[in-house]
């Protein structure tokens, strides 16, 4: 089991690095798909099977397919990276470094739990997941669904054809 953890971590890290370093956008997307699959594997190791499958449906099945779709439609396969200005690079480095700082601070305070082979097989099942979601986290769940609804409506308004006004 611990071997599987190291294997999945290695795959996830390597493919995440390849997302950044590969020249062609299509290759980046494919490496991102591999990265997401490795993370889904981690969820299964934690016995969160429902979360793993939802992760695959949402990210690999829907979002990544749309990414591939858009990149292919725009035909970004020419390997020409626009040369960024120096202050853009500097800003990117600073903001990235600050994110790293926050993440390190957050991860440092987390108590690591030892890896145990015998876990409670009832954690992470659909029934328990639904009960927790609709009891303890009812408000955030509903608030995020309203957020999604507003995003959908916004997309529809943006995508709607403007009415042609014939005033002449």
């Amino acid at each position: 089991m611990i071997f599987l953890f190291y294997l999945l971590s290695g795959v996830a890290l390597l493919s995440a690095l390849m997302v950044v370093f590969s020249r062609s956008p299509i290759n980046s997307v494919i490496h991102l798909i591999i990265c997401f699959l490795a993370i889904a594997g981690h969820y299964i190791l934690l016995n969160a099977q429902f979360l793993a499958v939802v992760h695959i449906i949402v990210y690999t099945g829907a979002i990544m397919v749309l990414f591939l779709f858009v990149i292919m439609l725009l035909n970004l396969n020419k390997e020409n990276e626009p040369h960024k200005k120096l202050y853009t690079k500097l800003a990117a480095i600073i903001s990235g470094g600050m994110l790293l700082l926050v993440l390190t601070g957050a991860v440092k305070s987390v108590a690591l739990i030892p890896f145990n082979e015998k876990f409670d097989s009832q954690i992470g099942l659909v029934g328990n997941f639904g009960k927790i979601l609709f009891n303890e986290f009812m408000l955030p769940f509903e608030a995020s669904s309203v957020l999604f609804l507003s995003a959908i409506i916004g997309a529809m308004i943006l995508g709607k054809k403007e009415k042609i006004t014939n005033n002449e």
């Binding site: 798909i33 429902f50 499958v53 695959i56 449906i57 690999t60 099945g61 397919v65 591939l68």
Partner: peptide
Amino acid sequence: LYIMAISSMGVI
């Protein structure tokens, strides 16, 4: 759910 998730990856 697993079957739905995996079969949606065929399009890739």
